[in-house]
Structures are given as structure tokens and as C-alpha cells.
Design a binder for these strands. Structure first.
Lengths: 243, 243
DNA sequence: CGTGTGGTTGAAAATGTTCAACGCCTGTGG
DNA sequence: CCACAGGCGTTGAACATTTTCAACCACACG
């Protein structure tokens, strides 16, 4: 099992430059680790967390709870991501976070992070950058769900998940484990389950990708990116992922 | 004409606590001011700005440019907002910013801001918080455009604009100048112009609000908020706006 | 006084949703 | 070992909503 520090540092380095002193400071941060069951909530809308989470394994999702009981998923997070770093500076959560499939997460006290920022501002800037990339992902989701056709939406989401997974080395060849159900896919992309199902079949028929029982299989990256009008610029990674 | 420092400080104080030394440091920051015509672009997708903008008067919008030439508006910004503060830490713009109606903006060199952060970390945290609130607004837009009916979407946008305007004292009674065209409303909410038009009439018929020639008139706040399922928590303001 | 932008409208066509039913797999208790 | 329940996924058809298209209005500006 990878240590929390390593996972976080690896992730931050995908977009930020860290000096030896930064690494030392990060490595000195204390944390606790926790296992989550599928669908278990990590943070609830309205909470005022005093720790920040780092995903170590599995996936976690952020979502809004709507007045009619429905959920709107906002983003998915994988190893290295900090799904609630915003809570460092905005007290009250405006959304919830739950596990998608079983997940392992580390909790770091805000105090420790803030102390690290004071000591090594670069660390703060790296995490700030992380939150800014989150925001870019949210913006892309607005566009995705508002301006693209159903197949393009779905393909775009698949592209984003796979691209990010690959950047973090979480893929196995052309496959990536994302234990998302079709219902959740619908609550992410703003489409009914029936449409999710039929759209997924369209993508399957295009031979560009498939998504079965929580595993995404990218068969033809180029075509999938074309269907999804995917361009990875908004992820702001320092260099493209391997392969 | 309000000085840029005052406008920015007032805005930051809506969500952050600033000490006298912070104010002094902010007041010492140099900047230039620029007038923009309606629709004039301030920053283009792909740019690498070395200054950050503060809106002094008028409105500015962020948007994605799509492959088919269409625009997807992502957010609107009014006096006090920093529509491109993210460029401080992510080099390349993933979206554009343009004026909505004539606008006045101040430009602050990144260097000056970064120096201020070094000197007074609280200032950095306040601007970080500002970018986090932006992200919360984006998240809400995902939900709005993905999970709400057309009237609710539009009402929600009106609520957000009016609430933010009121928090910054930019309203005149129940009115707020937002020189947005119906086409732009459609490109914000993900609906065709015909639907924008008909939905606007629905809202007008409900006697909760009206939007004519770039002026939003809120006739019945409570009802509008109900139609739009609007709850201002996600704006993370320290206290509710007056009235 | 004409031209253009922004706004309005009705009807046909396209796109999604809803609803109701069914299939498949898995895990559990008899 | 089998039977059954429940979660998840699949499907067809009726229905509702939204887009498209084409036309028209009205006001502002040169």
C-alpha cells in the first residue's frame, strides 16, 4: 500500500514544481487512514470539516443533494486527489463527498496543512493550483452538460477519467476501474437512465470505448476523443501522460 | 469613480477578514485601468496573462469557445470580482473573458500580487477563498444546467446575479443592470433562444421577476427563489446582503 | 428612411423522458 | 443445492419537451 505522502506528492508534481524542502515538509505531515465502503459518505453538505482528505485508492465523488432527493454528481476523484481541499478556506461544505466503490482515504488536519503553507508557501501554491484545476474541471462539466450531444457528453467524461487515470498511472493498459453505476452516470451527465443505456450502446457500437461493470475500456482513444470533443488542455498537466 | 483598491477590498471583505496591515499592503498595489466596449475580449483562451483583472464597473463573462463556433458562458462577474485570478497559478487560459456591455477593469501585475502574498499571507488566502467561491458557483451551474427545469434554471441564475449584486450594493432597489442578451442567456443556461424567450415569459407571468433590455427586476424575491430552488449557501458570504 | 440587431412567435421535427416490464447475476437462507 | 429476493441493467412504446426553421416585429442608429 502506497504511503499517503507519496501519493499526494506524486499528484502535486503532475502540475507543480516542488523543492526538496517542500517534500521534506510534506513528508512530515501526520495523517490517519480510513477505509470506506461503497457509497459511504465521507463528508456531508453542511459539514465543517477540520481535516482534508487525500484519496489513496479507489474513487470518491462530489455531489449536490437536490430538494427532490435526486443527486447531481459534480466530479470524480482518484488516487492523489484532494476532494475537499476547499474546506481549508470555506468553512461550510456546499456539497457532499462519498465513496464510489470501496475506497481508502487519508485525513490530514487543516492545522498541519496551514502550518506547512506558512513554512513553505510553495506547498500552499501547489494545493491552490490543485483547487484551480478542480475549478477548470467543473467549468468543463458545465460545457459538457450544457452544450454537447449525449454521446459527446459521455465520451468526454470517459476521456477525462481515462486521461487523468493515465496521468497518475492508475490504468492497466487500456482499462481503468471506475465502479460507477449507470444511474450515477446519468446523475453526472444529466440524462435519464434509459438514455444513459442507449448512449452507452452507441459508444460501444462506435468501437471507441466500452464501460462494463465499473470498468472503462478504451479501445480507440483517438476516436473517443473525437466523439467527446476532448482536449486535455483544461487539466493543466505539466506533460501529457505516458503512451 | 471608485478606486480599484476600495472595490477589491470591499469584495474580499464580503467573505474574508482582513487586518489593517492587509489593507495597507493592498492599497500599495499598483494597477492600470482600462475601459472595455461591449463584447470586447479581455483575455482569450490560450493566453498566458501576466496581470490579473478586477472588475470596477459593468460586467464581464467567462466562456468556452466550442469547436462549432458556439459559446458556452460559464460565469458572470461584477464590480469587485477577479475574473481571471486563476491565471496566477495556471499559466494557460482554458477559457476566454469578455465584457458584457461596457465595462471598466483594473489590471494588477501578478508580480505585485505574489509579492503581497509573501508579505501578508492572509491576502493570498482571501484571494484563494475568492477562487474557491468561484468554483462553488461553477458547481452550482453544473447542477443548474443538468438537473433543473428550464424555468428553474433561469430563475436560479437571476437569483444568483441579484443576490451577488445586492451583497456588493450594485442593485438599485429591486433592479440590477445586467446587459445580457437573450442569446447569451441561452448560451449560459444551455437552451435555445426560442426556449429562453418562452421561459422568460413564464417567469414574467409568475410575477416574480422580469428581465428587459439588460435590466433584471426582481418583483417577488421569495417566489423567484422558490422557482429557482435557490439557496445562497454556496456563495459563502459572511452575512446575508442588506434587505 | 433603410438596415441591422435583438427579440417574438407558430408549427413541424427531433430528441429525451417516463413508464412498465423483463433479464441477469449474485448472495442468502432454507 | 435450490429458490428467491434485490440490485443493476435493458428495452419498447407512448408521451412530453425542446429545437429548428422561417417568418415577423420593433427599436436604435447612421
Amino acid at each position: 500500500m502506497a504511503r499517503a505522502h507519496q501519493v499526494l506528492i506524486r499528484k502535486l508534481r503532475e502540475h507543480s514544481r516542488l523543492a526538496a524542502d517542500d517534500l521534506a515538509t510534506l513528508n512530515a505531515i501526520s495523517h490517519s487512514v480510513r477505509q470506506l465502503d461503497a457509497d459511504e459518505e465521507l463528508i456531508r453538505q453542511g459539514d465543517r470539516p477540520e481535516v482534508s482528505a487525500v484519496v489513496l485508492a479507489g474513487m470518491v465523488a462530489r455531489y449536490h443533494l437536490l430538494s427532490n432527493g435526486r443527486r447531481q454528481y459534480l466530479s470524480f476523484h482518484m488516487a492523489g486527489d484532494m476532494p475537499d481541499s476547499q474546506a481549508l478556506f470555506v468553512d461550510k461544505m456546499d456539497h457532499s463527498v462519498c465513496a464510489i466503490g470501496p475506497a481508502l482515504i487519508a485525513s490530514i488536519p487543516h492545522k498541519e496543512l496551514l502550518a506547512a503553507f506558512q513554512h513553505r508557501p510553495t506547498i500552499g501554491f501547489a494545493i491552490w493550483r490543485e483547487t484551480l484545476i478542480d475549478a477548470a474541471i467543473f467549468r468543463e462539466a458545465i460545457t459538457n452538460n450544457s452544450a454537447r450531444t449525449m454521446p459527446a457528453r459521455m465520451a468526454h467524461l470517459f476521456c477525462e477519467l481515462f486521461y487523468r487515470a493515465r496521468a497518475s498511472g492508475l490504468n492497466v493498459e487500456s482499462r481503468f476501474a471506475a465502479p460507477i453505476t449507470l444511474v450515477q452516470l446519468g446523475e453526472t451527465l444529466g440524462m435519464s437512465i434509459a438514455t444513459v443505456n442507449r448512449t452507452l450502446q452507441e459508444i460501444r457500437d462506435s468501437k471507441s470505448a466500452d464501460f462494463v461493470r465499473g470498468e472503462l475500456h478504451v479501445e480507440d482513444w483517438k476516436r473517443l476523443a473525437e466523439i467527446g470533443q476532448f482536449s486535455p488542455d483544461y487539466l493543466h498537466l505539466k506533460r501529457p501522460p505516458p503512451h
